[in-house]
Design a protein around this nucleic acid. Sequence first.
DNA 1: CTGAAAGCGCTAACAT
DNA 2: ATGTTAGCGCTTTCAG
Lengths: 341, 341
Amino acid sequence: MTSTIKDVAALAGFSIATVSRAINAPHTVSPATLQTIRTAIDTLQFRPSPLGRQLRGERTRLVGVVVPTLSNPVFADCLQGIDELATAAGFKLILMTTEYDAARERHAIETLREQRVEGLILTVADADTHPLLDMLDRDGPHYVLMHNDTQRRPSVSVDNRRAAYDGVRLLTARGHRRVLMLAGSLAASDRARQRHLGYAQALEESGVATLPPVEVDFNAPELPDAVLAHLTAQATRPTALFCSNDLLAMVVMRGLRRAGFSIPDDLSVLGFDGIAIGELLAPPLASVATPNRDIGRHAWQRLVECIGGATIERTSLILPHVVRDGATVAPPATDLQLRKA
Amino acid sequence: MTSTIKDVAALAGFSIATVSRAINAPHTVSPATLQTIRTAIDTLQFRPSPLGRQLRGERTRLVGVVVPTLSNPVFADCLQGIDELATAAGFKLILMTTEYDAARERHAIETLREQRVEGLILTVADADTHPLLDMLDRDGPHYVLMHNDTQRRPSVSVDNRRAAYDGVRLLTARGHRRVLMLAGSLAASDRARQRHLGYAQALEESGVATLPPVEVDFNAPELPDAVLAHLTAQATRPTALFCSNDLLAMVVMRGLRRAGFSIPDDLSVLGFDGIAIGELLAPPLASVATPNRDIGRHAWQRLVECIGGATIERTSLILPHVVRDGATVAPPATDLQLRKA
DNA sequence: CTGAAAGCGCTAACAT
DNA sequence: ATGTTAGCGCTTTCAG
């Protein structure tokens, strides 16, 4: 392993230049020489160091990936999609997580630039107002956003507004009128805003007043009592909940069940993300499913195009979402039934 | 960003050596000079390229992580644990997945070595018989295994045999006698073998015959009919299932429910891994929980010790597991109850 | 077809 | 305190 091109050259009896050519342009070397050198390479188990190449200004074959967390399968799935294609293309992935923290986003991007990555695939909290992205636009490297909902920058996502709209329409179509939206603590994110817009629009079309969204820290082990109280107060009790992500939906459902409520009999629940595990729940979780792995794949493809020198498209690629029906959603209980319960 | 140490030197009016010192050993440079150089660095937005340093034989501050997949939260959690500490220590992580494929394991390790990673953290299918690990022992870089159950190599895991034993004892303590073990398609892995040993031992102590393990592809969308039939055949019907991982447990439970069986009334189910999502299920999944994030953290710490030149300990670090009781496990139905159902 | 040499960005002797 | 220089592993002119 610790053998260098010099060792090969010495063993084969040629100059390092010839060895280099034998590796990178075999046809420019005489067959006999090629043979000798290849033998030397094999016996020494020589593998050219990417560092030398990189330093020469060659491609590093390195791509940075920046996501908020891997605890959420949404991002693990995206990463999986990227990894499939990147590995096949001979690229290496450097991974950094941010925990939705701006300082860490900044640190990750800087670190990755130092490493001379050829491109960046990232999910940030708020794409439109992100100063570092402007810097990337100017100085490179190329980047593609995942899940960020913006028109101004290269990105791959779903139409969050529309997806939320379609999801909430499922609820209103079932007869729900009092629908509450629950958002994670990342309420500041661009996609959270879009989802809320879609939610509001759907309710509006049903002539229903939009209830104020409730913010929940879905990393907390338990659903806070205050939130639980809010969800179940008799006077204003919603008949359905629209959770801005599946993990949140699961935490909320558990909290409600512990408090003695039944889903969907007492309360319908709709998630967002469509993580695979949701389908394995009992009852299966209804959710607005985003094609996470495909988002990762497409992000990779767009990045490769950019790196390849294609005209840099500032446009966002919108992938289709699917409203996945599930047994956590049912028609609302009638007042009579409610009273009985 | 394309500015180099030369640019800084030129702008500041000093040699590149002085600039290098200003960065790496500020105290060896006069305050005035330092000031000038720092200003130049700021205006040029200069950040030293790790490539030059690396080539100089300096530390790359790169660590490779190799896991089978990120679709299984077990590994995503490990990675999360590693990432926390690695980022804090100023290291960068290069991630590669293998999908349990030997060829990909090989490719990943080679690629990472080429990148001159300072260390490797990995989960392989079978650690004891892995030839590449022998090579790493000889030529470096240092590595630490996660989850692999071996005495011969540096590793961090739980005692899989004991953990499975403790889990199955939970079942026998509840009165179960016919306990079937379900294993993923990775039945060849070292930990799968250990888990089966523990399972067998627990049953033996109850004086019960060990049933042959059933292999299930838990990546399949549906539980195959043949497997379902096996699990529910009246004659040999088990009263409890021990699944070698939680994802598998969830797939199996869904299949059983669709076939009209109730859990835990008709059949108890115990998982393995203790992924966080299991606790959110209804009913919460009983599982032998492994401290995945801690496994990642400890793996990191051991790796750092090795890199730091500590005596290379070939020993495995065993972390405690926890048998997490859950409502998917109940006493077996009596024959009477069964007949009723 | 092959070799000599320069240089990528940086650090570390060795000089001054 | 600062500058000069060699060289890390490699690719790539430019000459033979």
